[in-house]
Design a protein around this nucleic acid. Structure first.
Lengths: 232, 232, 232, 232
DNA sequence: CATGAATGAGTGTTCATTCAT
DNA sequence: AATGAATGAACACTCATTCAT
C-alpha cells in the first residue's frame, strides 16, 4: 500500500497572486489579481453548489461581493470563468499524476497510478463534478476533459508497452486495453466525485488495481488471448 | 462468439398506440394517441440532433407538425416528454438485457452480457446519448439512469455470486467487483453512443470480456487477494 | 399653381389588414395582423416622439399595450420594425411621386415635381424625420434613403434629358444638374420635416421651381456655359 | 476661376496649448494642456473612424494612451469633447469663409463663396461628417450646426441684398432665396464630406455657381417673378 | 382535441461614470 | 494630475407556458 486516501475537504487553490508587481505600482496589480481571485473562488463555490447551468453570473458576483460589471472586466462570460478554473485544474492535475510511475514492482506502479488519479480528482471534486457536467453538453469543455483522459491513457499505454516489451503481458491489444482501463479509472473518478464515496476508497483502489493487474498480466486463460501478429 | 454487432441504424419504436381504448369513443382516443406518438417521435429526433438543452418545445412541435399548444396537452414540459422516452427506453432495454445469462461456459455468459448491453445501448444510441447528457445536470434523470445501471449490476452480481458459490473466483469483494465491472461496461456504452465506435466493436467486446474474466477468475496473483471474511 | 399644400396632420396608414383570410380560420390571421399593425402604429408614434435612438422596444410595446415578448413575434428588433415602416413608406412615396411628370408647360412639370415630393414627404414627416436621423448612423437605412433620392433624381434626369433633346436647355452637365437639383429638393424636405415649416410652403415651392427653371432654361449668361462636346 | 480644389488630406489642428498660462506654476498647466490636446486629437481620430455613436470613451483614451479617468478631468462626457471639437471647428471655419466676398464681378463672388465653403468643409471633413451625424439625433449639436449654416446664409443674404440694391436681381424673396441656395451648398458639403467626392469637385462648384447665378440674375422668364411688395 | 397568439420572468452584457489611491 | 478598478443602470432578447377561440 502506498498512501492513505483520506476523505478530507476540497483543496482550494485557485491560482496565487504572489507574482505581484508585474505592472506599475504593484499595489494596483495586487488589487486586480485579488479581485480576479475572488471571482474564481466564488465561481468555484457557486458551481459546486448549483452546477454550471443553474449558476448565474449574478450568483458569482454576489458571492464575491462585487458588482455585475466587475465580472466582465476579468472574464468574457460564465463559460470563460469556468474554462479558467478548468485550465488551472488541468495543470495542477497533470503535474500531479505525472509523478508516480516507475517501479520495479508492477503492482506498486499500478496502484500508484490508480490512487494518484483518484486522489487528485477527489481533492478537486468540486471542479471535477462540474467538469463532467459541462462536458455533457459543451463540446469545448468535453475536449478539455479528453485532454485529462489522454494524460491518463498515455501513462497507462506507456506502462503497458514496457510490460509488453518485458514479455510480462498476456497477448492483448495494448491500445484498446489502455483505453478500457483508462475509461474504468476515469469513470470511477466521475462516480466518486459526483456521487460521493459510495464505497471505501481504499478498497476501490485495491479492486481497480486487481482488475488492471489480472487483465494484463494473468496468463491463465489462453482461449481469450488475442491473435497476435507473428512478429512485429 | 455469440452474435455480430452491426453498426446499423437506430431502432425507432416510440411505443404504439393500439394498446387499449381507455377513453370515450375510441375514435378520439386513437387520434389522441397518434398525436402523442407523433410528439414522442419528433422529440426523439430533435433531441438526437440538438441535444436536450438546445432543443426547444418549438423544435419538437414543428418537427411533429403540430401546434405549440398541443404539446402541453400531452406533456408537462420538455423534461416530461424526455422522461417518457426514457421510461420506454428503460423498459425495452431491461427486457433485452435480462435474457442472455446462464451458460455452463463462464466466458460465454460474460461475453453475452457485455455484448447484450452494448448492443442494446447502441441500437438506441440516440436516446442513450441524451440520457447521459441530461443525467449530468438533472438529478431525476440521473436516478433513472442509475436504474439501468442497477439492472446491469444486478446481473453481474448474480453471476459473480454463482461463480463464487461454485468456488471459481479468486478472493474478491463481490459487490465492489460488480460495481467496477458494471461501471466499466456502462462507461463503454456511454463512450460508444456519444462519440461513435472509435474502436472495432467486436474487439471492444472481447477486451471487456477478457478484463472481466481475468479480474474474477484468474488465480495467478495471490498477493492481490482480498483478506476474506472467515466465513459468511 | 397646381394644388395647395396644407399644413395638416400626418397621414397614418401603416399597412392594412384587409387582405384577411389568407390562412386557416381567418379570424386568427386577422388578429395577428391587427397586432402587427398595433405595433407598427405604436412604433411610428414612439419614433416620432423620441427619435429612434431614445426609443426602446419597451416604449413601443407599452404604447401598443402588448407584452415585450409579442414584439419579437413580429419583428426581430428595433431596427427591423423601423425598416418595415420605411419599406411601406418608400412604396407609398414612390407611387405618389411617379405621377406628376409630363406637361407641355415646363414650369408646370417642374412645379408639380417639386410640390409632389415635398407634399408627399410632409404628409409622412414623422417617418421622414426619423429616416433622416437613422440614415446618419446606419448604413442600411442610409441605403434605403438613397433609393428614395434615386427615385427623385431619375425623374429629374428624365425631364432634363427631354428638355435637352428639345434644345431648350442651356449647356449643362445634365447628370450633375439633376444631382444638384435633386439634392436641393431632398434637403428641403429634410429641413421641413425635421424643423417644421419655417417658411411659407407655397413660397418655398415657387422659389425652388424658380431656381430649377432658371438654372436649366435661362440662356442669358453664356460665360457660365459648360464647354459642350462638339456633336454627340 | 479662383483656386483649385485639391483632394488632399484632412487638416489636423485641434487647438494649441501655448495660449496662456492660466493656472499655477505654468509647468503644470502646460502638461495638463498637452493632455487635453492629446484627448482632443484622439477623439477626432476615433470619431472619424467609428462615428460618434460607436465610439466609446475607452476608444478615445486608448488612442490617446491615457487612462479612462483622465478623460473626465478634462471633459464631462463624450458629447462634451465632441462639442469642444465642434467649437474649434466652427471658429476656424467661420474665419475662413468670412473672407472672399466682394468682387465687382458677381460670378467671381459667387464662385468664391461656393468654393470657399466647400473647400473649408472638405479640409475638415472628418469633423463635418460626424457633425452631420450627431446633428441628426442631438438637438444641441444640431444648433451648433445651424450656426455654421447661419454664417453661410448671412453671407449669401448680404450679397443678394447688394445685388438687389443694385437692381441686378430678378424679383425674388431674398431671404427665401438665400435659405434655398444656402441649403443647397450646405447639403453639397454634407454629401461630399460623408460619401466622398462622387463628382469632379471643380465641376460641382461650377454647377452650383451656375444655379445660383441664373436663379438670381437671369431675367428671361417674367412669369416666375414673385409679386413684389410695392416698395419696402 | 387542437390552435397559435400572447405572455413576462429572467439573464447576459455594455459602457459611461465615479473614486480611492 | 493621473490612474484604472469598480460600479450599476439600462436594455435586448429568449422561450417555456397559458388561454381564448
Amino acid at each position: 500500500m502506498v498512501k492513505m486516501w483520506t476523505a478530507g475537504g476540497v483543496e482550494l487553490k485557485v491560482g496565487t497572486y504572489d507574482d505581484v508587481a508585474k505592472k506599475t505600482s504593484g499595489r494596483r496589480y495586487l488589487r486586480s489579481q485579488r479581485t480576479r481571485y475572488k471571482l474564481l473562488k466564488a465561481a468555484r463555490k457557486v458551481f459546486d453548489a448549483k452546477g454550471f447551468l443553474d449558476a448565474t453570473v449574478d450568483d458569482i458576483t454576489r458571492e464575491a461581493q462585487l458588482s455585475r460589471g466587475a465580472f466582465y472586466i476579468y472574464f468574457e462570460n460564465k463559460l470563460d470563468i469556468f474554462r479558467s478554473l478548468v485550465e488551472e485544474f488541468l495543470e495542477e492535475m497533470s503535474a500531479e499524476i505525472e509523478a508516480p510511475w516507475r517501479s520495479r514492482d508492477v503492482l506498486v506502479a499500478i496502484e500508484g497510478t490508480v490512487r494518484g488519479f483518484l486522489q487528485a480528482a477527489w481533492r478537486r471534486r468540486d471542479i471535477v463534478k462540474v467538469l463532467f457536467e459541462v462536458s455533457a453538453y459543451n463540446e469545448e469543455v468535453a475536449a478539455e476533459r479528453r485532454k485529462l483522459r489522454e494524460k491518463l491513457l498515455l501513462g497507462i499505454r506507456t506502462h503497458l508497452a514496457e510490460s509488453h516489451a518485458a514479455g510480462l503481458t498476456r497477448p492483448i491489444n495494448l491500445d484498446l486495453m489502455a483505453y478500457i482501463l483508462g475509461g474504468m479509472i476515469e469513470h470511477q473518478a466521475y462516480l466518486t466525485c459526483s456521487y460521493g464515496q459510495e464505497h471505501d476508497p481504499e478498497e476501490v483502489i485495491q479492486t481497480l488495481t486487481g482488475v488492471w493487474y489480472h487483465a494484463v498480466y494473468c496468463r491463465a486463460s489462453p482461449q481469450l488471448d488475442q491473435p497476435q501478429p507473428p512478429a512485429k
